[in-house]
Design a protein around this nucleic acid. Sequence first.
DNA 1: TGCGAAACTGGCCGGGTGGCCAGGAAAGAG
DNA 2: CTCTTTCCTGGCCACCCGGCCAGTTTCGCA
Lengths: 123, 123
Amino acid sequence: MSADKTAEIVLALEIDDPALADRLTALLDNVSGIRLAGPGEQAAATVVARDPRSMPEDIALTQRELDVLALMAEGSSNKMIARQLGISVHTVKFHVGSLLDKLDATGRTDAVAHAARRGVIEL
Amino acid sequence: MSADKTAEIVLALEIDDPALADRLTALLDNVSGIRLAGPGEQAAATVVARDPRSMPEDIALTQRELDVLALMAEGSSNKMIARQLGISVHTVKFHVGSLLDKLDATGRTDAVAHAARRGVIEL
DNA sequence: TGCGAAACTGGCCGGGTGGCCAGGAAAGAG
DNA sequence: CTCTTTCCTGGCCACCCGGCCAGTTTCGCA
């Protein structure tokens, strides 16, 4: 058997730019091992125009702030974060405050949303 | 210039599954007209694949819950959501409570994170 | 050696949050 | 018509959150 493990990979296209979409369609259509997905067909991978999150304008966050941010994204309360990191709740609040400031957020939910949008964290 | 309209299209790969990533790399590498992006290079398009665990499995949310959820993701407080939707804070809390229950979240931040992960909302 | 940045801790307090109780109105399904 | 679902509202209350004030230590850099 060993039937073709390399059966065709089904690719979907999600490109807004018609010109780019056409070029990619033409190019990929001739590649053996790859097939473009039909309408409604489930694809193994999708080609999208431009990666939303790879916008590097890195925000300068300290290591500790990243630790706190990651736990915030998990839904942890300040108390849980404090226990997890072995520090006091006051210190957690201190870092959260810096995070809100640097991420220009109004609250922890907003902070996590902004961080996710900017690619600082991965949900 | 009319520079080559058929200049190489730079593609980035973002595939969780290593096997699939390898196969795609091998296949796409041989296609003339396409070049894979180097590290940090800006690509015209990105090939993405969802990770196996992120299957749709739509959560049954009512329209009102979706309204509240969307505003929560913007960082709005219950009071702001109430004003925005023209309902009382109590009603907002009611919907938030249902949201926490349905999304299996411990708080509003967790709820937004879960919803984003499951594709219920877009950040 | 001084100086700033980062990390850490404390108290205080107004307002936000979430869970509990209770109820009512409207629309659709049986 | 009755029953269910969704949506809506109120009160009450313990707890959490974020912002304010204050302070200490440690580290690297000029």
